[in-house]
Design a protein around this nucleic acid. Structure first.
Lengths: 229, 229
DNA sequence: AGCATTTTTATACCGGGTCAATTCTTCATC
DNA sequence: GATGAAGAATTGACCCGGTATAAAAATGCT
């Protein structure tokens, strides 16, 4: 079953092969989402009621909650689907490479693809969502909560391959710093995009920033949590 | 005017000198807060309605919201009054000392006083609140938001005394790492306390952890943001 | 077509939070 | 000492997000 949050870059070719029923479901999901983001971008998050979104989507209020558990999910769901990426990257890193290097390389690669998760993306809808999150306290809080969650997951991922020379506190610090670095880089990129910069133009500088940031972390953590070859 | 969140260690002597009116106000504020925390500790956060708290406090529901803007504030307000401490510590650090050292020393001092803000405190009410925050997702999210706020404040504090050799990104990384370290240490202490350890007994180990954690950060950041002598 | 399953809807309800108005206190003025 | 204006504490009515239940509609299958 395809998750209901596969918007954005959702592949279109397998959409035709799906049963008629699921296809319609996905379409209404996208319709509700687009309507909501449009209304939120026009006014403010708190100035748009769920009932209004439902009416504008030709759907009942209950149906909206059927597709999106909460009003906040209408905005956050697409961003939260890559939630487990950092932990996965560390877990599946090449033997002999440290957690820091694995995360750095993956982030650099994501930057070059202008992955929205890096903040370096100037798509109109993405920008609308980012702007919305930045100016709505409840959403901003939830965005930071995502990173907090990632830090926890990362911690367990590191502990699974833990080096007995390091204790749990070091692992916690490392996880927190790695995620904090990502959050900082991503936020910086998002701010740039919100000022109107083009993603492609900002790429070289963003890559440079990322390299310097991870170098800073590495200097502190050293080769911490290097996977056994 | 005394803020309404001066519970806990609020000084009692200046309470007598206050006008009769304000005194009663503060007392009802404390009464509502105690009632709420008691009910929350007995059951769960979501299983206690504001109306119930109001009834148990011999007050109307609206009065509760008059004293505490939201239901969450009934739990979080006391913790959030020391929100600006990290930024203040950095801003007022001794000339010639780095931001890292200033924050480390202040944290070590707070630990030795068993300051609740460090997590190293086994007072019954404090433990109730901490336990509540840890097992209530909405409250845990807000707790991390507090640290996010502190990182922002810390960034501006560092920028005020910024060294032209370092750019803004470095400052952001540093702020994020410093706050992440604090969060990690505090959380570790809180977990210890929740397992029933006595704060005084856990102090030496906590001090050691803090020293090692800040050493790790310092190795990465070096003498970053050392105030001009 | 007709049955079964799933999706949508209507409705009623609960709890958190806001607003305008009401009551009560305070205090300056007569 | 009475009085009336000013202002705060309090309140009841209301809105919105979210849930539960059951009915109605749409779809898949035979």
């Amino acid at each position: 079953m395809a998750t209901r949050t596969d918007f954005g870059l959702g592949s279109d070719q397998d959409l035709d092969t799906l049963p008629l029923r699921e296809r319609k479901k996905i379409q209404t999901g996208i319709r509700i989402w687009r309507t909501a983001v449009g209304l939120f971008a026009a006014r403010d998050f708190d100035q748009v009621s769920v009932a209004e979104i439902a009416a504008a989507s030709d759907v009942s209020k209950m149906t909206v909650f059927n597709y999106f558990p909460t009003k906040e999910d209408l905005v956050m769901a697409p961003m939260e689907q890559h939630l487990d990426e950092p932990a996965r990257v560390v877990r599946e890193r090449a033997p002999g490479s440290s957690a820091v290097v694995a995360l750095r390389d993956q982030y650099l690669a994501a930057l070059e693809q202008l992955d929205p998760a890096t903040g370096l993306n100037d798509d109109q809808v993405v920008l609308d969502v980012v702007r919305l999150i930045h100016r709505t306290p409840a959403l901003a809080m939830r965005a930071t909560a995502v990173f907090s969650h990632q830090a926890r997951d990362l911690l367990t991922a590191e502990l699974l391959a833990q080096d007995p020379a390091h204790d749990e506190l070091t692992a916690q610090i490392a996880a927190a710093q790695l995620i904090a670095t990502r959050l900082t880089l991503t936020t910086a990129n998002q701010r740039l995009m919100l000022t109107g910069a083009r993603a492609a133009d900002a790429l070289p500088a963003a890559l440079d920033r990322a390299r310097r940031a991870y170098a800073l972390v590495e200097r502190g953590l050293g080769g911490y949590c290097t996977a056994a070859p």
